[in-house]
Amino acid sequence: MPTTAETIRDALLTARRERSLIETASLPVPASLAEGLAIARAVSRGAGFEDLGWKVAIAPDGTPIGGLMPGPWLAPGEVYEGAIGAELRVEIELGLRLSRDVPLRPGQPWSRAELLACCDKAFLGIEIVESRLANWSGNVAMPLWLTDAMGHGGYFVGPDLDMKVLDDLTGLGCFISLNGVTIYDQPAVHGNGDPMTPFLAWANRKEEGLGPLRAGQLVTTGSLCGGVLSPGKGEVVTKLSPLASVAFTLR
């Protein structure tokens, strides 16, 4: 009989390959966050994805968590292809590119300033959240959510921003429209206050987990607007006002 890890891995690999959805209740739940991360690694390796980027967060119990973002990595103006029947959510984020490796430093935690010094670029990032798990919103245990890279669907890498934007979100706004109709227009707010908090927590994790933080990788610091459900497909305009915007197509 397949193990929990094998069952989830094989189901997620099939769903990604066929661009289909899995009934969440049909999957077992990993016993721990660590097991969920290990399965995520197995899915990434099984699909042949490179370790190009990270989605980091903090679990409700305070544990730092991360997901390897397999892409697709898209440029503004390109098209994101969603699976039939999948929920598509749009997240406006601040991203960073690592200019050097950030190895684990047991007994010598990275400081916020040190971590920023390891980055050479900040940018406006737009994540498309599209889980392989059907009806996932609010209904998935965290260890299982981790196996699917926390619902990562794809990522638009937008214009460069001044690194100082990470220090103060005051006066910034998040705007999203679909086919010319506004679906979100609110001040930019990060769930942890400081956008660097989840990144710093992950850099200072106790164990390697999914692998090392390496130069050239991109790191997303978390949504500034929550996950905004798209009511349909079409032309999307996103803005982190007054700094930058990214337009793309959902199809």
Rank of each mutant, 00 (worst) to 15 (best):
V90H: 03
V90T: 01
I92R: 08
I92H: 05
E93N: 02
E93G: 04
G95H: 00
G95N: 08
L96P: 12
L96H: 04
L98G: 03
L98R: 06
L98H: 06
L98K: 01
S99Q: 11
S99M: 08
S99L: 00
R100T: 09
R100V: 00
D101P: 08
D101I: 12
P103K: 11
L104K: 03
L104V: 11
R105L: 11
R105C: 12
R105N: 10
R105F: 06
R105G: 13
P106H: 08
G107Y: 12
Q108P: 00
Q108G: 00
Q108N: 12
P109C: 10
P109W: 04
W110K: 09
W110M: 08
W110G: 09
W110E: 09
W110S: 10
S111H: 14
S111E: 12
S111A: 07
R112V: 13
R112C: 15
A113Q: 15
E114L: 05
L115H: 09
L115N: 14
L115M: 14
L116G: 15
L116E: 15
L116Y: 03
L116D: 14
L116F: 08
L116Q: 15
A117K: 10
A117Y: 03
C118F: 08
D120K: 10
D120L: 06
D120T: 01
D120I: 02
K121Q: 07
A122N: 03
A122G: 11
A122C: 13
F123P: 08
F123T: 02
L124C: 00
G125T: 03
G125Q: 08
I126T: 04
I126N: 03
E127M: 05
